[in-house]
Write a protein that binds this DNA or RNA. Structure first.
Lengths: 140, 140
DNA sequence: GTTAGTGCAAACTCTTTGCAGCACT
DNA sequence: AGTGCTGCAAAGAGTTTGCACTAAC
């Protein structure tokens, strides 16, 4: 299954790449290269450079979305039917997907007003999740 | 004038900081620490670490907005009356401010649905500006 | 006089690259 | 067999930190 996805993108279906796709699928939220790296088992380990390289090539071939978050790290996620954005907890980095993307209309307006060819957008809303807010209250 | 802004924020009004505010004001668009550093004249130079430190403390005190762009670099801008977002050219990094921010309504919805306390958001739209698109056409 | 700001050098984090060897097709 | 993938080590970019000195209040 992952096999076909990779081949269709012109990439070789190696065990490591299939595992990375599986990890991203199970993760359910965007992961950093480091997190993907650590999710490999002892049996099938993978070098960190390889993780970076594979994630980047898969992102180039549109298998993954690559986004930078406010913590300065790059996060990867499967590029499913339509893209998604996240609400991220500042404290624990848990994230909640945001279903609707309010930017399509804005992009149309911008194209007309500025002459730019719009190639993409990214947004992220940050906050503090109820659990972390609770912990914070306990401390005080 | 910058003097009062700094003091009101509990910071000392040093020549370097006043100059940084001036540079950001003249720039008219978000600048990286490196760009601010290079904008200093030979007469009044400033160490790069000092630029980083000063920009970060001014951002902590809400004098500046600090945002990370898709190129992985941190950009600083004056925190004027209401915040702004940018449409950034992928090629030359020229940026156009976006007046209206479509996220306020979304944030209200999210607060209700997720229980998160929303602390901020960031978004950036990328594209190719007409000038760079033109140059690209010439090359081909 | 105190406290906060600055310069310099070194360290740190995340990410990329060169090269030799290995594995998928 | 050939091209693309991988591991390892080293380098690179951007940013932060420790410490001694200086300047603003």
């Amino acid at each position: 299954m992952d096999e076909q996805i990779l081949k269709k993108a012109g990439l070789k279906a190696t065990p490591r790449r299939k595992e990375m796709l599986r990890i991203l699928l199970n993760g359910g939220c965007p992961l950093t290269a480091e997190e993907v790296y650590h999710a490999f088992s002892e049996k099938q380990s993978c070098n960190l450079s390889t993780v970076y390289r594979a994630l980047n090539t898969m992102a180039e071939r549109r298998l993954l979305q690559k986004n930078i978050h406010r913590d300065g790290r790059v996060y990867y996620q499967l590029n499913l039917e339509h893209h998604s954005h996240q609400l991220v907890c500042e404290r624990c980095h848990e994230s909640v997907p945001i279903d609707l993307c309010p930017l399509e209309q804005l992009e149309r307006d911008l194209r007309e007003n500025t002459g730019y060819r719009i190639t993409g957008h990214q947004f992220e809303i940050s906050g503090v999740c109820p659990r972390c807010a609770e912990k914070e209250r306990e401390k005080k």
